[in-house]
């Protein structure tokens, strides 16, 4: 299995260190979870890997040619915007193959006229199904009902089976246990 992402003693932050030092690697076909209490720096870590936050110390390497996709907890600002789900997916190059039927039927509707869960899943799908080898997800199960969580788990496993590496931050311990091959627990002082 080829390594897509390798971090050694990585400390990330915006202005000053906001995460404990972390050793991490994600290989193609692997789903890795990141858990830990609020404020420990899980989101900052994803942001540093995506190039939004700073690498304060340590080493971070992403294999050459690896394309990244990032889902953040900030929802795309679609309120008041006449944009359909189909148009949103086309923007990121996401395929509609594998989309649940309860969303396929709503692809022609404006995003701001969908329920919060439907909108969240489409915004997540626009990232998840876009062309990328390494997918970074931040609390993807937020706002999803049981059917959505189940479908997301299946989709992540299919995506990994197709060769993508997935690094996922979540507070949903049950979902992490059911979906990830391994989960790193971030604590204020170290990584367990």
């Amino acid at each position: 299995m080829s390594i897509l992402l390798r971090a050694e003693g990585l400390v990330a932050g915006w202005q000053r260190p906001a995460t404990p030092a972390l050793d991490l690697q994600v290989a193609a076909g692997e789903i890795v979870g990141l858990a830990g209490p609020n404020g420990v720096g899980k989101t900052t870590l994803l942001a540093a890997i995506a190039g939004r936050a700073r690498v304060i110390s340590g080493r971070l390497a992403i294999s050459a040619g690896v394309r990244l996709a990032l889902q953040t907890q900030e929802a795309p600002p679609v309120d008041g915007l006449p944009l359909s789900g189909r148009e949103l997916l086309a923007l990121t190059g996401a395929t509609t193959d594998g989309l649940p039927t309860w969303l396929v039927e709503r692809l022609g509707s404006r995003l701001d006229r969908l329920s919060g869960g439907q909108r969240h899943y489409l915004a997540l799908w626009a990232v998840l199904a876009a062309p990328a080898e390494l997918v970074l997800l931040d609390e993807p199960t937020n706002n999803l009902d049981a059917a959505g969580v189940l479908h997301l788990g299946q989709t992540l496993r299919q995506r990994a089976a197709a060769g993508a590496g997935i690094l996922m931050v979540s507070h949903d311990a049950e979902f992490l246990a059911a979906t990830c091959q391994r989960t790193l627990l971030l604590e204020a002082s170290d990584v367990v």
């Binding site: 995506a50 190039g51 939004r52 394309r67 990244l68 996709a69 990032l70 953040t72 795309p76 600002p77 679609v78 944009l83 148009e87 949103l88 923007l91 990121t92 626009a126 990232v127 990328a132």
Partner: peptide, 17 residues
């Protein structure tokens, strides 16, 4: 058009790509 919409909805995508 596509890039203006993308810059509004997924600004990170430019950096990632």
């Amino acid at each position: 058009s596509g890039r203006l919409l993308l810059a509004r909805l997924y600004p990170d995508l430019f950096r990632l790509r």
